[in-house]
Computed example of a mutant assay.
Amino acid sequence: MEFNIKEIFTATMVLFAVIDIVGNIPIIISLREKVGHIQSEKASIIAAVLMIIFLFVGERILNLIGINVNEFAVAGSFILFFLALEMILGITLFKEEDASPKVAAIFPIAFPLLAGPGALTSLLSIRAEYAIENIIAAIIINVIVIYIVLKTSARIQRFLGKSGITIIRKVFGVILLAIAVKLFASNIQELFN
């Protein structure tokens, strides 16, 4: 096991941008108003478990259907690209509406808001480039941030304001767009080698 600070930082930033916990504060606040209390601990732990399980089992599932990690990374780069466009342009491509008070921590918060298709695709995409221990460290860092944001979402919204959240979301959208292009470029070369 060899931890690499650069890999941990980059993987953390990729997941942070894809999960977009800051950009999801308005969704979390409206959900809290609908269902009352959100179990921050439960949502964070379930999201972490889903991401770590998919990190290990996702590649086996791909192998069963005859797809390698590089091919999945190229497909994942397209998803990241569209997620980035969604963040930059302020459009919504995917929206989940109904939430039951009993399952609010799991659905829609843990899945698909936190450990959604974008995050799971990103995990396998970055697995093609980074060591697994660095990705797990990135997941843990993101889950800690997710927990803090879930616990303090009302205060964060008051502090940043609507325009602050919009600016942060657009900045992370541009970062995610650049990461999507890098993932595409490096993995498309592997496919042709």
Rank of each mutant, 00 (worst) to 15 (best):
I65R: 09
A110K: 09
G90Y: 15
E71K: 00
L89R: 12
E59P: 03
I46Q: 12
F107E: 04
T121K: 00
L80M: 15
P108S: 01
F56S: 10
A128V: 08
N68W: 10
I136G: 12
F82I: 12
L89F: 15
I88D: 09
L89W: 12
E97W: 01
E97I: 08
N134K: 10
V74K: 02
G76V: 04
A119D: 01
P101I: 07
M87Y: 12
I135E: 13
I135K: 13
L50Y: 07
L80N: 08
K95C: 01
S100Q: 14
N70R: 03
I65C: 06
A48K: 11
F56M: 10
F94M: 15
E96C: 04
F54D: 04
I106C: 02
G90N: 15
M87I: 10
L89K: 13
L85H: 03
F111Y: 14
A84Y: 06
I52F: 06
Y130H: 11
I52W: 08
V74D: 05
L89Q: 07
A115G: 09
N134W: 09
L83I: 11
A138E: 13
A115C: 01
F78Y: 06
L55F: 07
L64C: 04
F81L: 15
G116T: 06
Y130Q: 05
I132N: 03
V49Q: 07
E86I: 02
L123I: 14
I109D: 02
L93Q: 12
F107T: 09
E97C: 02
M51H: 08
I106H: 00
M51V: 13
A84D: 06
S125C: 00
S122T: 13
L50H: 02
L89E: 10
A105H: 03
E97A: 03
E129K: 03
P112S: 10
V69Q: 07
A105G: 06
S100P: 04
E129W: 00
V57N: 03
I79T: 13
F78V: 12
L123C: 09
R127P: 00
R127V: 01
S122D: 05
I126V: 15
R127M: 04
V69A: 06
A47V: 10
G90F: 15
E97L: 06
T121G: 11
L85C: 13
N68E: 01
I52S: 09
A131S: 14
F72I: 00
R60S: 13
I136Q: 12
N68Q: 01
G90Q: 14
F111E: 08
L55S: 09
V74Q: 00
M51L: 15
M51R: 08
S77H: 03
F81Y: 05
I61W: 11
L124P: 05
I46C: 11
V74H: 05
I109P: 04
I67L: 13
A47E: 11
L124Q: 08
A128L: 00
I52H: 08
S125I: 02
I91C: 09
K102V: 05
A128F: 03
P112F: 10
I79Y: 03
G66K: 02
V74G: 04
G66W: 02
F81S: 07
K102C: 00
L50T: 14
I136Y: 13
